[in-house]
Design a protein around this nucleic acid. Structure first.
Lengths: 343, 343
DNA sequence: TTGTACGCGTTATCAA
DNA sequence: TTGATAACGCGTACAA
């Protein structure tokens, strides 16, 4: 039961009457080693149940095989799926992932990055906080020459690898779809914050209207926090104002859900009276009644891409490769909430 | 931009004309040190921007401040919430969490544990795979004297700390609630697998019936995988058989959702014709129409508890404290899907 | 192809 | 209270 002493390369060396260096080389596949000793080493390593000590190796080599991953909230489908994606790629390359969450608080963000650096991670994959306007902690990462990959919530203030989805395109697809279903008075739920992704979604919405010769109506655009309650409030406001509308494109599934509730409470039919499209592809969207049309951001693939960029940067490092920005194309998932014309 | 040389305790020592040992002691709050030198050390540490090297410390002390956390699936609300809970406690104690997922495959499970051990984690918090019947990899953890905490999916084959919810009680509450709403012919969706938690839920269901003098009817119990499709199939089977039923207690929200769909498709009213209760408190349950009554397992709290048990075991370690099993009491979240009697 | 020798940064032990 | 020294386990110039 007790902490049986772990075997080290020295134990193997002793048993074979060679030195630890030889064993180290044999285990690492160093070419400057004879086949016979290599075989012997591997054999006794198995026999003695040798497991390499990553810590010692890390201290010596400066590589921990650890990736620090920072997300705003671990338990949100979008983010946990991205973690999943990163973990899949990382594990396949014998890397491990440390996760931390910022809860959108700058202080936590800074502490997490610092903790990652202290843990001597080989690099960081992060999504920056909603309100973060200060990027020194990230700059430090870059100054140390460590790979830093940003996903979803990125910033032009950092010259580094990024993965985002094409928010403009997602919004354009969503709005176009509503237009093709015959909607002409389409409301939009968005947020005031200065995050690029919402600006892009708004732009996609406007451009789609334009392309269908529909004049934008500011009275149909609502800003809030894009939560369920906001969606409810916006929809109630719409109904109260008596402003005619036949479709809603919400930049978030939650606000779309709020709209669905209020519309139903008021006896309006979805999609006949009002067609509804959300954004995020939250798991619940397929379970609403009617199921909610939404935009898939492919979070697992996003995780894969982020990890791939990471390893790309890790291997390039010194060669100062130009930071890549990868844009993932979203997909419109059409469900009953927007299908006026049966196909 | 280049990898500026990190300052070490030696740099501080040199500057102050003391030895590294003194600096180390000062930084670690060792009592055998004068206040003046301690202050001086801390001051120059700040000046030189000193950051401790966890790796070196880990190699020397044998403690990495890392927890290996193994879950079946990272991107499932229940599990990601538990990860969140563990992370919160761990971070507050300056520990980091490495996550891996098994995807319910024994092989992945073994590899993950092995990887954790190689990374020299200070211990492991895990939920075992659905089909895992072989626990040698976990026994190895215990044999090395490392803390191992199991949550949700546990096993009597391992003598170690565990956190589970009281599945029996959750099921009992759910079924009792249906009975109090006037249901007398209550169907149950479960799974054949030999996992304790589903057996317990079944037991809770039976005992509740018994306590209300309702004779159990085997024709109302269905086994499957508890996914949406299973719930749909079970409900269709119920309707086809013509077996009368006025309530369903599903051991999973997904199967309950399937039931809701089929009932609505057949023009049955929820809860008037059939009252519905699920289990898990998946996020989508509050968004269904009607919202689904379900059982909350308090996953974040579960994570907190698991982490607390972990640190308890870590600090006890040699003293061979008896492995604790913590049972969390679930809560019935009553929503419209089961509320026949308006309160 | 293998061995020698040293260092990565920290901490534990012993001595002063 | 502080210093000197060694050691944690591994990797890598350099030499042989």
């Amino acid at each position: 039961m007790e902490n049986t002493k772990k075997t080290t390369i020295h134990d193997i060396a002793e048993k074979l009457n060679v030195t630890a260096s030889t064993v180290s080389r044999a285990l690492k596949g160093n070419p400057r080693i004879s086949d016979s000793t290599k075989k012997a080493v591997l054999k006794t390593a198995r026999e003695l149940n040798y497991e390499p000590n990553h810590i010692a190796s890390a201290l010596r080599s400066g590589r921990t095989q650890l990736i620090g991953m920072l997300v705003p909230t671990i338990n949100r489908s979008f983010f946990s799926s991205i973690i999943r994606g990163v973990e899949e790629v990382a594990n396949s390359l014998d890397y491990r992932v440390i996760v931390s969450q910022s809860n959108e608080v700058l202080d936590n963000e800074e502490n997490a990055v610092k903790a990652f650096l202290n843990a001597r991670v080989d690099g960081i994959i992060a999504s920056i906080g909603k309100n973060t306007q200060q990027f020194d902690h990230y700059k430090q990462v870059l100054e140390r020459g460590l790979p830093l990959i940003l996903f979803d919530r990125t910033t032009p203030h950092l010259q580094t690898g990024q993965v985002v989805i094409d928010d403009y395109q997602g919004a354009y697809l969503a709005t176009t779809h509503l237009l093709e279903q015959g909607c002409r008075k389409i409301a939009h739920f968005t947020t005031e914050r200065k995050i690029d992704i919402y600006k892009e979604r708004y732009r996609g919405y406007l451009n789609a209207l334009q392309d269908y010769q529909v004049k934008p109506n500011e009275a149909l655009v609502f800003s809030g926090n894009l939560q369920l309650e906001d969606g409810r409030a916006h929809t109630k406001a719409l109904l109260r104002k008596g402003e005619a509308f036949d479709g809603i494109f919400s930049a978030s599934d939650y606000a779309a859900m709020g709209a669905m509730q209020v519309l139903k409470e008021n006896g309006l039919k979805i999609p006949e009276d009002v067609a509804l499209v959300g954004f995020l592809n939250e798991p619940f969207t397929s379970f609403t009644d009617p199921p909610l049309t939404t935009v898939n951001q492919f979070p697992i693939e996003m995780g894969h891409t982020a990890a791939n960029l990471f390893f790309h940067a890790l291997n390039a490092e010194k060669k100062k490769i130009v930071p890549k920005k990868t844009v993932i194309q979203p997909e419109l998932i059409i469900r009953a909430s927007s299908l006026k014309k049966k196909p």
